[in-house]
Nucleic acid binder design. Structure first.
Lengths: 195, 195, 195, 195
DNA sequence: TATGAATGAGCATTCATTCAT
DNA sequence: GATGAATGAATGCTCATTCAT
């Protein structure tokens, strides 16, 4: 790794985050050691501490990184699609993350209770996700595809929660196809224009 | 053969489970040591190992215990109520668990990936929960309070997932009242008799 | 196990010794726990302590037991045989013990340094072994089968040491047949009537 | 990459091995803790684990070290001496090790049954010892000092076994002078040119 | 900047042994 | 005489973190 260039630092940090991300999702936070992360990068442990003050901070950065990945997914899924197709596409995309989220997502929550930075990240993430969905819903309501009787914010939160809940179900062994069926059905029921 | 009380052992086990439960939800699995559990019981570490072969096994037992607590909650909530009131009651009850579940629920998932017993417990739990909801829905469909057009199983899974998702939201800082509002609204939308 | 009969005690002790012997030779002293010994007898640990004040004492008793087994072997081997045949028979018999002695014999030595009773047993054993061999040699010298020029005691010690040394070699992987060949050849050379 | 001294590591390893050696021969393998070894070196336990992955591996290294010590002894003893004087010198040297080998030698055997590396070391050691003796005997046979009728290999194994056996006798309390007397006498008898 | 080495603190687990019953 | 339960004391080992270089 280089010696001088200052903005190179950010690049190295990203490399570390990525390596840590890979390991965290594979073996969980507690199951991953700083040594392993360093080794997977071909550096030594102290090198890590030059970029992150501690394991938790590295994890927070990893969470942010995970977030970026996810955010794109959400927007990509609905882009140019109606709510039905978009939701299906989204869910398919989400399911791809399931095997990874295995250990990480759950531990993020736990750590968030003690790590301010992580908690902030997580909360903001969810907030933003919901806003994206909300905007999408509002647009659909304008075109009449979603009953305008419904509060877009409420609906967005519900969708987000439903997706998360189903994802956890899959994580715990539910059949992916069933989860998807439920997702589509419940969504249709929730957004449908009705009496 | 025990000298006097054969079920004394079971009693002690329950005591240990309870103490461990309290600590696990407070500090998480990794954050809780066998020593702390023992100390909180006024015994020594080896005493614990007379009842549970290891920390993970104790945790699995704790998970089972948590499950029992929850199960009662679910049935009690809907007993003699319609779906609206029952759901509201349920959610209120669930929210009481949130501060506790903080650390535990998430770590259960992680450990479940490696601990067979724990995984089995978790899966069976969810399965049973869903069946309870499903039965309730079926009954409501018979009385016309829920559209019989909907598959009770699908609806049950959706409700379960939605509740779980919202609970995690609260866990991560969402306002409890908002969560409840969403829960009620989404549920009405999902079960409502409609076109 | 019975309650009253006093000399029954000795019988129980023997049972314990035998069970412990089996486990000690299989897994060594440190590798065997009091719990395993008790379990293999279908009793509980405290029961053992009613017969032996501690693990080391039990081990000493086991060593004595092992000794008895061995002593018979020695005498049986030479009974009615000349030194050549007797030695061959003895070595065959000894080799049968090798897989067992694996862990035990070596640990006996170590423990003997701290346990007086055990050390006494071991020393007496060797002393007696040597006396048996010595007597045998003397008798053979009288018949002229062994050079009377040799000190029977010295010869006996040498034979004993040689056998022990070869046994350890086998223990460490030497081919049994080679060990036997060496044993016979060396013995012939040592006892032969010569210039 | 080490900053300055690449072979520094090897140096430290040797220091650890030596400290461990001292403790192992004094208190045996099970009687010595990693903590004691570390303490005797003025370092902490984890430092040890930087050089040896575990206690058994450290022990194996110690065994190798012990071996080196011994090997030199063997060659030095016979160098420039005839078999009689060489053997006497060797035995004197060996006797010096006895108080040390007390605990260690025996436990080496036991551990060797489970530790591949250790077993390999031990076996190779014996093999090499025997080869050294064998070569010496062959040379002596050429000069007629040892009967060329005898198989050098067989004789070497016998000598090695005899020495080991006598050493164990001393270990168990035999008088050192008697052991030496036997050693010399038996050896003379074995190697002597005879009818 | 990065490294080799070291550390402090801890942690699950084991086991011989002892009570109260 | 025997048991279930409990204990005290270790023990090997791990890991995040920090220095000297």
């Amino acid at each position: 790794m280089p010696r001088i260039i200052p903005q190179y630092r950010e690049e190295v940090k990203q490399k570390i985050v990525f390596a840590a991300f890979t390991l965290f999702i594979e073996k969980g936070y507690h199951g991953t050691t700083m040594g392993e992360i360093a080794e997977s990068l071909g550096v030594t442990k102290p090198a890590l501490y030059q970029y992150f003050p501690g394991k938790e901070d590295l994890f927070a950065a990893v969470a942010e990184h995970a977030r970026q990945e996810f955010k794109g997914t959400l927007e990509r899924a609905y882009a140019g699609r109606n709510i039905r197709d978009g939701s299906a596409a989204l869910f398919d995309a989400l399911l791809n993350y399931v095997p990874q989220f295995n250990g990480m997502y759950s531990e993020m929550l736990l750590l968030a209770t003690r790590n301010d930075r992580l908690r902030t990240v997580l909360v903001q993430d969810r907030t933003e996700d919901i806003r994206v969905i909300e905007r999408f819903i509002s647009r659909q309501q304008e075109t009449g595809l979603i009953s305008s009787r419904l509060d877009p914010r409420v609906l967005a939160v519900a969708c987000d929660a439903l997706a998360n809940g189903l994802l956890m179900d899959v994580l715990m062994g539910m059949d992916r196809d069933e989860a998807k069926t439920v997702w589509i059905a419940a969504l249709e029921q929730m957004v449908r224009v009705g009496p």
